[in-house]
Simulated scan of single mutants.
Amino acid sequence: MSESASHPNENERLLLIVEDDAAFARTLKRSFERRDWRVILATSLEEARELLRTHAPTNAVVDLKLGTESGLAVVQALHQHDADMLIVVLTGFASIATAVEAIKLGASNYLVKPSNTDDIEAAFSRTPGEVDIPVAARPTSIKTLEWERIHETLAETGFNISETARRLGMHRRTLARKLGKRFVP
């Protein structure tokens, strides 16, 4: 990539998308580019950190589940890199615990998939504490509650899988398998 992004134009919007679903990431990238955004892609925390060495994104979209990695670690790293970066977390695994952790770690907003470019841009421009956000009634399943507890404990342990498994009273391999599964509550 021959972009000189380390010194972007002040009016330029550079979006970092951290998403491990390649098809979804490409679709989102094209959609944002049609809206005059410059977009860079990463599929993991390590790739995101590598891009931060040469690019200065103004905004980021982070998937909560990146393979076996938690997107919360990415949110934390992005916020530590630039506290002014607007970060929106996307997830198919919506839970109160992960939403709260994402905000605590520096996300400016949290959206449930499927979310489109309009939703994400609106989330970037929303001010903290808006009272006009619609409240949706969605029953919580046992799997969702389990997922919430796993993510809450992961955040508490600094994303240490062994310690998280110990605290949850499960074998490390069982936890790794659960993190590797793709379920939709």
Rank of each mutant, 00 (worst) to 15 (best):
M1N: 08
A5Y: 12
H7T: 13
N11D: 15
V18Y: 09
E19N: 10
F24Q: 06
T27Q: 02
S31A: 11
E33V: 07
R35N: 10
R35A: 11
S44K: 09
S44D: 11
L45E: 08
E47D: 05
A56G: 07
T58I: 01
T58L: 01
G67P: 14
G67N: 07
T68V: 15
T68I: 13
E69M: 05
A73Q: 14
V75K: 03
A77C: 15
Q80L: 14
M85P: 08
M85K: 02
L86K: 04
V89L: 12
L90T: 00
F93L: 15
A94P: 08
I96R: 05
A97W: 00
E101C: 08
K104W: 01
L111M: 10
N116P: 12
T117M: 03
D118H: 07
D118P: 09
D118E: 10
I120W: 01
E121H: 04
S125G: 09
R126H: 05
R126V: 00
T127H: 09
V131D: 14
D132M: 12
A136F: 15
A137G: 13
P139W: 00
P139R: 07
E148R: 04
I150Y: 13
F159E: 09
N160L: 02
E163L: 10
H171G: 11
R173N: 14
T174H: 04
L175K: 00
K178H: 06
K178A: 12
L179F: 11
G180D: 08
K181D: 15
K181R: 11
R182K: 14
V184G: 09
V184H: 11
